[in-house]
Amino acid sequence: MSARILLVEDDEKLGRQIVEHLTEAGLEASWLRDGGTALGLAPQNWALLILDLMLPGAHGLDVLKRWRSQCDVPVLVLSAKQDASVKVRALELGADDYMTKPFWPEELVARVQARLRRPVLARADRVECGAIALDVAARRVFVGGAEVELTKVEFELLQALAMRPGAAIARSWLVQNVLPPERDGTERTLDVHVSRLRKKLGTAGAQLTTVWGIGYKLKSEDVA
């Protein structure tokens, strides 16, 4: 998927670099150098907008205001200022996030990509995560189409992880929210449950990984 990104940045070197890195990441980037022009364009033609605040022609905050009055396309603000009030003002005006210079290109691309696929946390009846599929209503789990029998705790553990694929979930949270409260819920008990679950999931068990210092996560991609 190639999403169209618009960058508004007046600095030649930085602008060129950002476009280069976005393009390398497989994104289609256009580049505007002044605020005046940015003020007049239709933001809905892009999937995401990257906006520098110090611009010739018009201030970034004014551009942001104008865009926000037209549509809700995500806007990532680039700020060179440490001044909290500018960031706060940008967020108040509807910016989705900001980055303070200096930043690494990798950081910017990651932020753009995260923003583009921001998950909608709607309560889906059916959750799919790589080879694993959960029928939440019926409380059934399928791996590669074949149903896997899970205990109540195991199912809820898997569901908790699958609801936020790729995100590390803290052990403490899982102990509190997944393990039955009546029993002595300890992190050791949790680890036992996870280990059983992993075994039951078979090949897909590799998707369920331990995260150092935190807990567990369920990777969304298939792990061979």
Binding site: W104, E106, M163, A168, G213, I214, G215
Partner: peptide, 20 residues
């Protein structure tokens, strides 16, 4: 995110967890 590049360069696994 700010430290990711440095962590990767150093071979340090940098992970984070947020509540739901």
């Amino acid at each position: 995110g700010r430290q990711t590049t440095i962590a990767r360069g150093k071979g340090v696994e940098l992970v984070h967890a947020l509540p739901g």
